[in-house]
Amino acid sequence: MATNSNLNSGTNVSELIAKNKEKKSLNNYFEKSIPGILFLLASITVLTTIGILYTLVSQAVQFFMEVPILDFFTGTELNPLSQNPEFGILPLLNGTIISSLIAILVAGPIGLMSAIYLSEYATDKVRKVLKPLLEILAGIPTIVYGFFAFTFVTPLIRYLWPGVEATNILSPGIVMGVMIIPMIASLSEDAMNSVPNGMREGSLAMGTTKLETTIKVVIPAAFSGIMASFVLGISRAIGETMIVTIASGSSKNFTFDIRESMQTMTAFIVEVSGGEAPAGSTLHYSLYAVALTLFVFTLIMNLLAKYVSRKFREEY
């Protein structure tokens, strides 16, 4: 109808067609450029990775030109600010591993038991209340946990266990554990939820109790997912910064005494970068060497989690 009225009003048809074609080709041009634009946006994430790797590696190489790589990884002394600075990473590795172990000792059992409750025992109604509440725990900024560890948990521990120092590795370890409970709980619960109900019912029909079914059927079947959640939890704890920075102080102790202050890799980076390291100094480059070690550590843990969940997955 519209074309008819146009014809009647005497508009030149070929002109209209030309206009339409022009518009179409403009649209076409636009249409064709869209994938290119989107591709550029998508490649920013790849650039980020390259940026991280390049930054860390190029500066860490500078560091290793001044400090032999073997001394760095086997040195038990870290005195970056003294006259004869020593850069041994072992005190930092020690602090990182101990705090992460404490965290997983807290979060592993509690997270797994929470997952068992939520997935096997809780009614739908209870689950709908508890899960969002646990998610709040995951949404609290880590700086708030740091404050909590320093001003509440540490005094509490010192009251119960005299001899614990004002800054110690135990308190941030426990609080980090609380922080990763929701993560382990929800990932393990996902793993247990994906176990088909037929297996549970088969077991229950044999006359087992729910507990026996959970421990002998559901958990073995969901084992890969549960292990992966533990590994991811440890990786989170290794990379966690603010809690240990605030509550564990900055003594570069090489000790296994959890009552004492220790520094983690992340806390070292905060201390040095927030402070006095002039650009180009060995101290400045040491930041990147430590960060590279941290990056490799967490990357290995994350890849391990993926490997575990793929390799040991039971298909149903």
Partner: peptide, 22 residues
């Protein structure tokens, strides 16, 4: 790209700080 994104999600936040600083 997708593997890369999931790995980026696991990078500790402090490492991003060093990226930003540099």
């Amino acid at each position: 790209i997708e593997t890369n994104i999931s790995n980026l999600a696991g990078v500790p936040s402090i490492v991003y700080g060093l990226l930003g600083l540099t």
